[in-house]
Computed example of a mutant assay.
Amino acid sequence: MSDALTAPVKLKVITTITQQDTKPEQYELWSEGTIMQKRDQIYLRYEEVQEGQHMQTTLRFGQEDAIIIRNGDIKMRMPFVLGQAQKGHYNSEYGQLPIVTLTKEIKFEPSESLQNGRFYLQYELLIGGQSVGDYALELNYTEGNK
C-alpha cells in the first residue's frame, strides 16, 4: 500500500457468534489502522490481539464479496461471496484446518468520505462439513489520526 493512497482510521469491530442451543456471544475490538480504495474495493488493515496472540488483519470488501486475511501468530484466509460457499483455511500451531464460509448477507455502507463507513457480514462457518455456528461481523470505521 502506498502512503499516498492510504488514510488512517479508527475501527470498532463487533463479532457475534451464535451456536446451536446457546446464547449468542459478542466480542468487541477497538483498533487503529489504514484504509485504501482500489476501484470498487475497500482495503482495511489493522492489528488484532486475541488471547495474547498478535495478528495483522487485512479486510478487503465490496458490495457482494469480501475476504479476511490474518497473518501473525494465527494465519487465516476466509473468502466471502454472497449466497455462495467459499473455501478458506485457518493455520494454528497444530497445523492447517480447511474451513468453508456460506455468506448470507453483505452490506457495505460508505459515506462521502473514504474514512467513514460501515461494513456488515453474516455467514455460517463450516469445519469438516459441520456447522460450528453463525457469525455476524459489524465493522464501523471513522477518520483516524495521522
Rank of each mutant, 00 (worst) to 15 (best):
R118S: 08
E112V: 11
Q37N: 10
G62P: 10
K87D: 14
V132T: 09
A66M: 05
Q56N: 13
L97V: 12
E64W: 03
Y43E: 09
E105W: 05
D134Q: 13
P8K: 11
N91W: 05
Y43C: 07
V49P: 04
K104C: 01
E47G: 10
Q122A: 11
S113D: 11
T34P: 07
R70V: 03
E105C: 04
K12Y: 09
Q86M: 13
M55H: 04
G129I: 02
E109K: 09
T6N: 13
A4E: 14
E48W: 04
G95T: 00
M1C: 12
K87M: 09
I68P: 10
Y120E: 12
L44D: 00
T142H: 08
L97Q: 12
Q19F: 07
Q84H: 13
V9K: 03
V13I: 15
I42G: 05
Q41H: 11
Q86A: 12
Y123I: 01
Q86C: 15
G144K: 02
T16R: 14
S131L: 01
K87G: 09
N71K: 15
R39Y: 09
L82H: 05
G117S: 06
E51R: 06
T58S: 10
N145W: 05
Y135N: 12
Q115A: 05
E25K: 11
Q50L: 10
Q56C: 04
I68A: 08
I99N: 04
V132W: 00
R60V: 08
E47S: 14
N91V: 10
E28P: 03
K107S: 09
V100L: 05
Y43M: 09
M55F: 07
I127H: 01
L137S: 03
T58Y: 08
N140L: 08
P98Y: 01
G117M: 04
S131K: 10
